[in-house]
Design a protein around this nucleic acid. Structure first.
Lengths: 230, 230
DNA sequence: TCTTGTTAGATTGTCGACAATCTGCTTGTC
DNA sequence: GACAAGCAGATTGTCGACAATCTAACAAGA
């Protein structure tokens, strides 16, 4: 018996590729909140028929970043200040749980992966690639969820991540600015390597606070004027 | 200006009806875990083409009660003891959060609705309708989530509910027994009406414990012998 | 006997066309 | 001019057929 262990090969259906394409377009802000997705137009652009496109859209509707109104269309979700606030306060509690569960399971592989992802964030920061920076920061943050050994918790995190990424991208897009200091994660990583779980939880909560506060004030500003929607 | 406030009319697409039908079939145990869903057969039974059926399936895949393998098929999810355990421990934390958030928002409408749903459970219990009993019990339990005023929390609860309902239905199906005492919820309702939030949280946690413990031991028993899977 | 190549059948993935529904404009009437 | 009816045009929902892929059975060769 050979010792090579292969991972499952990639999905080769058009549907899966369409999902990835659409998700990326939404999360990077190419598709704005409220915008309508014209099936015929998109299917022609992608050189695909409407069937797999529609199936892909259903997935994203369930994922929570699209919303569908029968016979009217499918739209990118609108982002309200309350949505962000809800996600924010929910995330706080989830983080505490994730850290608590992951804490006793930390091992060398955890620390290595932690460093690896931290490095990825720093690299994206140096390259001034804001989109990638958001992505890598969320991946760094997601490690505790992957290590918490709870499928429901992890899945919930993934769902939340989509929206968080969209929120942050939206924010970046509007401000068009290089982003916060890179050592915002320095303390986070150090605490996750340490011995004081409570301190790690506390920091995670406050660290998130910082990013969200800006996001919230931005979103609140948006709600003064009516949204155009494409 | 008239005073009538209408609720949105029902979804009139076949897709929505198919989703409801399939979900019900899965959650009541008509479709067993691991079972494959043959598209042609189901579409013929429902007198529908495969397109809306497939779209409906994508939704349920994202909802987490179906799983899809490209070119192989779509299956009802398998239920492992760990899945149940994960959902259980996650639910405990969510409950604490929901009660905390809903607590200051309780009003007369809340108490009325609480009684109404409690009554529904008791009625289902008297009628020995186990399926409906599970359904109504979860609805009773879900009230704190609806009142917590957090869209993400509520949505997460809904996702979790699907699976919980499936787990419990599975359990019932196997035991084929009238179910626990009806006043299990009596204390829960009373505490939610009281003044001691901590006590309510504690009870919610322990109350859930009871139901889940049985479920877990049942699931653990299942995993000894290999599953047939249709 | 075990492995490998082939083939037939069944099932999923994708396509192009048609039907149902919505939206906005035009028309006609008061 | 205001308002309702009705009529395109565009868009979504649904259908039936075809293409791609998988599975399992069988045959051929080592």
């Amino acid at each position: 018996m050979g010792k090579a262990d292969f991972s499952p090969i990639a999905d080769t259906t058009r549907r899966a590729e369409i999902v990835a394409l659409l998700r990326r377009a939404i999360l990077t802000g190419q598709l704005e909140p409220g915008q309508k997705l014209n099936e015929l137009r998109i299917s022609e652009q992608m050189r695909v028929s409407r069937a797999p496109l529609r199936e892909a859209m259903r997935e994203l509707v369930q994922e929570g970043i699209l919303t569908s109104i029968p016979y009217a269309g499918t739209f990118v979700i609108e982002v309200t200040a309350k949505d962000i606030d809800d996600a924010y306060s929910f995330n706080k509690v989830m983080d505490e749980l994730a850290i608590e569960r992951a804490w006793p399971l930390r091992d060398q592989r955890f620390f290595d992966e932690l460093d690896r992802r931290h490095e990825a964030v720093k690299q994206a920061t140096r390259a001034l690639d804001t989109t990638r920076q958001i992505e890598t920061a969320l991946q760094l943050h997601g490690l505790i969820y992957e290590w918490a050994d709870n499928s429901v918790l992890l899945e919930t995190w993934h769902r939340l991540t989509s929206r968080l990424q969209m929120y942050f991208a939206l924010h970046q897009h509007a401000r068009n600015e290089p982003v916060p200091a890179e050592d915002a994660h320095e303390t986070y990583v150090r605490l996750l390597k340490g011995k004081d779980m409570r301190a790690a939880q506390r920091h995670a909560r406050e660290h998130i606070d910082l990013d969200f506060e800006e996001l919230l004030s931005y979103a609140r500003g948006l709600e003064q004027r009516p949204s155009k929607g494409a």
